[in-house]
Amino acid sequence: MSKSYLSIERVCLTYAGGRSGEVLRDVDLKVERGEFVSVIGHSGCGKSSLLNIVAGLTPLTSGAVVLDGVAVETPGPDRAVVFQNHSLLPWLTAYENVRLAVDKVFGRTKSRPERHTWTLHNLALVQMAHAKDLRPPEISGGMKQRVGIARALAMEPKVLLLDEPFGALDALTRAHLQDSLMQIHASLANTVIMITHDVDEAILLSDRIVMMTNGPAACVGKILPVDARRPRSRLSFAESSAYRDARLVAMEFLHTRRAAA
């Protein structure tokens, strides 16, 4: 019996047939309410598969994912996903993309004006209120990802799943979005799991960093707590010893494991 908010218990993922083999073996991870956890590892190690299992998009082979006392089997809005390539519907405006999720999740519990206000509120949260009537092809990559985050936040998920959300963005845009995400997390205290391959991003944002071993049959290699007070400021935090220590440990893990593989 697990007491954690989100508990990933001995999760295994094996693809039968064509694509050979074992992707994940006995992945164990506990996440507390309000915690920000990053999962980091080399590409192809199965970290996105892990996120998809928590989202319910990929069925697991064995083990269990338990969120707030309920086993996860299918996808649902309590585990909102921000996909790497934003996956906004291009024929809807930014507002309509968020509104679709709001209508679906709160269709019974909120009135129409409430849903309208809630949609605008979430767009404002990611500083996209000014572009609410634009369609995805008309806005930049960073703006699309902001709308994607707004759509996920608007579902009021129990856990927010971010699949390399800033991977496709340039460094400056990425930094802006990281700052926005930190502010949102500070004010809403969401429970977040973020997949990333960027060590600095993981250290800046996370309470704990989960480092995965290389696949096949990847598992949790090491969990690195980041002991630093929030709010963290990008510049001063980068100079602190906590940051440098964490970075050293993470780099060492990633590079020695790679050498061993």
Binding site: P75, P77, R79, V81, L89, L100, A101, K104
Partner: peptide, 25 residues
């Protein structure tokens, strides 16, 4: 695939999927 995943996360009904994702796409 992404649009299908969005529909699954939102738990759109088959009719909603047809009208809001499939037809426009």
């Amino acid at each position: 695939r992404d649009y299908v995943n969005v529909a699954r996360v939102l738990r759109l009904s088959p009719l909603e999927y047809f009208l809001k994702i499939l037809l426009p796409a």
